[in-house]
Design a protein around this nucleic acid. Structure first.
Lengths: 331, 331
DNA sequence: CTGTTAGCGCTTTCAT
DNA sequence: ATGAAAGCGCTAACAG
């Protein structure tokens, strides 16, 4: 900038004004400055220097969980991100995706990112990435949980929703099972019975499991005998693998409550007989396969997270879900 | 930082070393500094100040086209982004999505973003956002095109691929049609005939159209009589609407070359009689519907773009496609 | 309408 | 192992 000023025969301030307050510079000088800039290949004020000066970056950080990869493969996470992006676009904020999960320096990356606030995608209570985001004292909004002092949480009441859909899918079933997201960050695939929701590290998964248990109780079903198949991701292929294990463990299974439409689809594909199935999210998949599911707008929640992170109030989302009854639980 | 230094009774340099070269500080002093930092709620060096000093941000910018929204709704764009993210994660770079398409200050946003390099998602020759990215003299890598001096282009040979798949889908057809992406940034939906590829603003669309025309010529089909249905996005619903118009205009149509699997699916759903159909990308949709298609890895191309933007050489991708023959063109 | 001064928070270089 | 000085590029505040 100093160079441009010299070349144009003005002070640096005039150059600065030319870019930031064009009205305060005479058209003549302005043209001269711009010409000098063009000659020197100067493209405008340096963004880092500007941020330093302003004390703000006009950038919103997003942490998509332990492995970036999972997030992009999960259509719901993508929807969520689209919501965040929408708000960023409207308000002229950059959207910085912080690259986590590729090393052991996640903490440093989160702390060292040039952002004004953080939106954190659902994670576990003990996720160091979450701790890192909170430690920077920037505003933090967490989607889905965990709740944490000093942060904002945006998400639906997963327990209530799971109970509602659980009652629907388990009704009349003699051998209900659950197809679950991972319980903790190890993301082990396995089949267990009567899993205690309180032992689950992901709040969203915990709440949904608790809701399914509530539903089982409502229907007089003994939760301790309900097999839970735990998948590594929200992936149809994962679901099929786990479903095969479930069928092996409980050949008479006749109802599956799945934590996503993708998982539900996997269950359908591996079904050996008549089967009641419920999904979650009311995605295209659910509509195509006539799946009973829980409708919620991840996109809207993403937008709400961004809005909250940028300091504006957002409505409570606890009741922003809806049970969608379809053919998959009609029999 | 100065405050922390004072509180710990050391110089600012010692605090700086504590964070950047822990080994060069005695464990004792280090502990003292860290304690002081904790007390004061200091979370480490300010990222903007650091970037200013280093002259680099360790952040890669991505411009997803005129409307951010379209990008997140397009599964191929998401795949591409996943590839970019993967490389960023590996190398500890942040991934900044620059929010374009929500106002007329796109140019400024691109110029003012704190990034070291840009990856630009396919756009038109005349996109001001592209011009903005290039004007900053940061390295720019463009996916799919346009080609531009001083930038790197990563993408397949769309014309050759379109010709190959076109020959496959148009073979034996009496009334072939094309289901196309938008021709220019206005994204009008319409049906035309014998569209001149050279009049198309998007290089990718231009090349594919030219390739389909090549295929028509190879088969002795008169291109000027081939209806082209232009969709607004790569969306199944869009495709259905346009397909209905095509059917109205050419009730005897019996072959559809579509520029994406999504569009091809829309065509299938609106088919009134036997129909040869080809898609593009070899996505899940193509596999599920036994669709002849062009396989390419957007994810791999995203990774290549990021790698190139970060200054490393990448192999040529022109031939990184493959014709996948399936039942949809078997008859 | 234009210029001067000061300092945002950090790290490189060169001492000690 | 620690520190002092200088400056990265910019803009708010206040002249003139």
């Amino acid at each position: 900038m100093t160079d441009v000023a010299r070349a144009a025969g003005v002070s640096t301030m005039t150059v600065s004004y030319t870019y930031n307050r064009p009205a305060r510079v005479s058209p003549d000088t302005r043209a001269r400055v711009l010409r000098a800039a063009a000659t020197l290949g100067y493209a405008g004020p340096d963004p880092s220097a500007r941020s330093l000066r302003y004390g703000a970056t006009r950038t919103l950080g997003v942490v998509l969980g332990e492995h970036l990869t999972y997030a992009f493969d999960d259509p719901q996470a993508v929807r969520f991100l689209a919501g965040v992006a929408e708000v960023c676009a409207e308000r002229g904020y950059g959207l910085l995706i912080v690259p986590t999960g590729a090393g052991d320096d996640d903490h440093d990356r989160v702390v060292a990112a040039a952002v004004d606030a953080y939106v954190v995608w659902t994670t576990t209570d003990d996720d160091p990435v979450l701790a890192a985001a909170c430690s920077t004292r920037r505003p933090v909004v967490i989607h889905g949980g965990p709740e944490r002092a000093g942060t904002t949480m945006v998400g639906i009441d997963n327990r209530a929703a799971a109970r509602a859909v659980g009652v629907e899918v388990f009704a009349g079933a003699r051998r209900p099972v659950v197809l679950s997201f991972p319980l903790d960050r190890n993301r082990e695939m396995f089949v267990g019975s009567g899993i205690d929701p309180d032992s689950v590290a992901y709040p969203v998964t915990r709440d949904r499991l608790a809701g399914y248990r509530d539903a089982a109780r409502d229907l007089g079903i003994d939760w301790s005998r309900v097999p839970v198949g735990v998948c590594r991701t929200s992936d149809e292929d994962d679901a099929r693998t786990v479903m095969r294990h479930l069928v092996a463990a409980a050949p008479d299974l006749d109802a599956v409550a799945a934590m996503s439409d993708q998982l539900a689809l996997g269950a359908l594909r591996e079904a050996t007989g008549p089967l009641r199935v419920s999904g979650w999210d009311d995605s295209d998949v659910a509509r195509q396969h006539d799946l009973t599911t829980v409708a919620q707008s991840l996109r809207e929640q993403g937008a709400a997270c961004a809005t909250a992170a940028l300091g504006d109030p957002v409505p409570d989302h606890r009741d922003a879900w809806r049970l969608v009854r379809r053919g998959s639980t009609a029999a």
